[in-house]
């Protein structure tokens, strides 16, 4: 054998040896953050420092909780994948803007601690962590986070003294009649910071779907079924708001594009994703119209999260060529 010009060390690894460029968990999470930029921008324009403080508090609290949990379970710190920051931003955007700081902190601790860490961290949780945190504080601080939590009468910002379109609608705005849709669409109505502008949400959401960092079937299923439900309820006289109003208010779009699409807590198979989205759409409308809660996205998502293992099981596709023949 001739002397070898060859390197002494050659890696041995399983195929495939190449990977799609720019495909990583971290990249997915960064995509979510990019997609949230328009929403964050509008939130800051409308709510000024309230939005900044709210989101900031939640992100910091989430990161801190993750650090503590990782230390406690002696797991390597996994902040780098960005998923915890995403949870923080979404939580911050979905809490009422005027909620006191400790509510943000508590919600974050619950989101990361109860929503994620107890299941074993990223990839193992069943329920959407941000919604777990939000549900916890919603149930514990009903008064602070009810409709009144969105209205600060002596605020210098005019929008903050307006009632929120959906939450206060039942009590306060009957007299106002149905508002025009335009302000809802571009966003200068009161609400949680993440809920004000349907345009910003749509923009970010489409980016996510285009990047394949969110499964398009989920928002598609949710928006379609939600619209049909709203149409039916409106026609039946069960709700005073026309369907488009339902679409553009509250956290419907926020939920469709940013909450329901959390990959970990949604189905992996296309048909399951459609059914999952459709389920959330229907449940949201049912809760909005028939329950005491003015908003239904949060509970709808949590309920459908619980159904994901079943959906995954029911939608196992038939392999090309059919199932393996029994021996």
């Amino acid at each position: 054998m001739p002397a070898s010009p060859v390197l002494p060390l050659i890696e041995v690894a399983p195929s495939p040896h190449v990977a799609e460029a720019d495909s990583s968990t971290r990249r997915m999470m960064i995509d979510v953050l990019i997609a949230l930029l328009p929403v964050l921008g509008i939130a800051v324009v409308v709510f000024r420092w309230f939005a900044v403080v709210q989101v900031g508090v939640c992100v910091l609290a989430c990161l801190a909780t993750e650090m503590v949990c990782c230390r406690a379970r002696a797991k390597p710190l996994s902040l780098a994948d960005g998923s915890v920051a995403v949870t923080g931003v979404i939580l911050g955007l979905s809490l009422p803007w005027a909620a006191p700081w400790y509510i943000g902190v508590l919600a974050s601790v619950m989101a990361v601690g109860l929503g994620k860490a107890v299941f074993g961290g990223l990839g193992y949780n069943i329920f959407n962590p941000a919604m777990v945190g939000r549900a916890f504080v919603m149930l514990s601080f009903a008064r602070e986070l009810g409709a009144a939590g969105y209205v600060v009468l002596e605020s210098s910002l005019e929008v903050l003294t307006e009632p929120t379109p959906l939450m206060a609608a039942e009590e306060v705005t009957r007299a106002m009649g149905v508002e025009g849709l335009w302000p809802l669409f571009v966003g200068h109505l009161n609400g949680s910071p993440g809920e004000t502008s349907a345009v910003a949400l749509l923009l970010g959401g489409l980016y996510l779907c285009f990047r394949r960092s969110a499964a398009w079937a989920i928002p598609a299923g949710m928006i379609l079924s939600g619209y049909v439900c709203a149409e039916v309820f409106y026609a039946a006289g069960l709700t005073m708001f026309p369907p488009l109003y339902h679409m553009f208010t509250g956290s419907f779009f926020f939920g469709a594009f940013f909450i329901a699409t959390d990959p970990v807590t949604s189905p992996v198979i296309r048909r399951g994703q459609l059914a999952f989205g459709a389920g959330i759409g229907v449940l949201t409308m049912l809760i909005r119209v028939f329950s005491g809660y003015p908003e239904g996205v949060m509970f709808a998502v949590l309920l459908m999260n619980a159904a994901v293992p079943l959906l995954n099981r029911w939608t196992i596709p038939r392999p090309m060529g059919g199932p393996v023949a029994a021996p």
């Binding site: 968990t25 990223l122 990959p263 807590t265 992996v268 198979i269 196992i316 392999p319």
Partner: peptide, 21 residues
């Protein structure tokens, strides 16, 4: 890129030519 836990994104399902999960 570093290996993480499965994030259940379903991309693998979308591309499998044999229609597996």
């Amino acid at each position: 890129a570093a290996e993480t836990a499965c994030v259940r994104c379903g991309r693998c399902v979308e591309v499998c030519p044999m229609r597996l999960v």
